Computed example of a mutant assay.
Amino acid sequence: MASSSEKRYNPQDRTLTFVDGEDELDFLCKDFKSLRAKMSCGHAVTPMSLTDHCRRLLDDEKQCRFVCGLPKCDAEWSFEEVRKMALLTPEEVKEFEDKRFRNAAKQHLGIRECPGCKSRVMRTDLSDLSVRCTVCTARKKTLYKFCWQCLREWKSPALRTDSCDNEGCQSSLETLKTCGDVVFKEVKGATGCPSIRACPTCGMLVVHNGTRCKNVVCSQCKVSFCFVCLKTTTECQKIQPYSYFDVCSSGVAPRQTSIPVRQIR
């Protein structure tokens, strides 16, 4: 069975669009002797380079999507497209599916490793930072909780939504309060906007680096929202006139003083 380094496109495959010679689209291609074909976003790949790129993406536990990654191109590829264009072997298909499920579980189901026993624990109450580990509780024969934020044994006696009493467990509210302002390179008039926001849908802290437009996509709940006014992108776009690169008509939303909690239904 062919390895990643041996995979080659069939030049007779009429379902592919091939790229010849020097081309600005070969952002992933290192094997210039192989035929290069265009992805749906227009950029060129070889089976080997696409396989390696997607494997690196999934090695990041926060990633469960296949994205182009070329500057100014945030196109997302379907798994079907990746499987076809990367000529994935059955072993690679299973590898990618397993990694995608693992990463998605950690991001969307709220799963982390207990610092005491390393077993996977799911958080069901998103308003409580203290999480009970049933394995450690059974082993120690006493209630064992750990902090979802700093992943250390829980110390605070009361339910907390910002931090526990462990040193260095920084409150998300403190982060929102003390972070500097973002300097937008392309969004006009958006001065005094904090560089870190809590996603208005789920409360995940999101950073804007000042490039591109004012909209960002939360890596946890996948909801797109306006970093300036803190409305979802859909709601922000309803307010006319609308521009991706101008300050919102409602102005810059003030620093947040509470963390939104995602409602599970």
Rank of each mutant, 00 (worst) to 15 (best):
D74V: 03
L50A: 08
V217N: 08
L126D: 05
D26M: 14
K141M: 05
C193I: 06
R14C: 04
A2L: 14
H53D: 08
R152E: 01
C169Q: 01
K222G: 01
K84N: 11
L230G: 01
V252D: 04
L176Y: 04
A253G: 03
E174H: 13
L28S: 07
E167D: 07
V223G: 01
D165K: 11
V182I: 06
E186Q: 13
K222D: 11
T257K: 11
D23T: 03
S219W: 14
I111K: 02
Q256W: 06
R65Y: 15
C179P: 02
V247C: 09
A190W: 13
T137G: 04
T234L: 12
A190E: 10
T51V: 05
V187R: 05
T17N: 09
S119R: 15
S49E: 03
C73Y: 12
P157W: 14
L126M: 08
T191C: 06
P115H: 06
K106C: 07
Q63V: 14
G251L: 02
D20M: 02
F146C: 00
K118H: 15
R8S: 10
V223T: 10
E81V: 01
E61K: 12
V45D: 05
C179A: 12
S224H: 08
P115V: 06
L205H: 08
S127R: 04
Q12D: 09
R160K: 14
R83G: 12
P194D: 13
S49F: 14
K141N: 10
D128F: 02
R120H: 15
K141A: 04
R212I: 02
N209Q: 11
K99L: 15
V261P: 00
K145T: 04
D59C: 01
C64H: 15
C68V: 05
Q256P: 00
E61M: 09
C248V: 05
W77P: 00
A75M: 08
V207H: 15
R255E: 09
S219M: 04
E174Q: 14
P11M: 11
Q237C: 10
F227R: 00
M39Q: 07
V216H: 01
R262N: 08
V252R: 02
Q237T: 10
S171Y: 04
S249A: 14
A104Q: 14
C218I: 02
V207S: 13
F18S: 01
H43A: 02
R139E: 14
P194N: 07
L109W: 14
S78H: 04
V82R: 03
S195Q: 12
L176K: 09
T137N: 02
A190I: 09
E186A: 07
G42D: 00
C68Y: 09
R123P: 00
T142Q: 12
N10T: 02
R197C: 07
K185L: 14
L50S: 05
S34G: 03
D31Q: 11
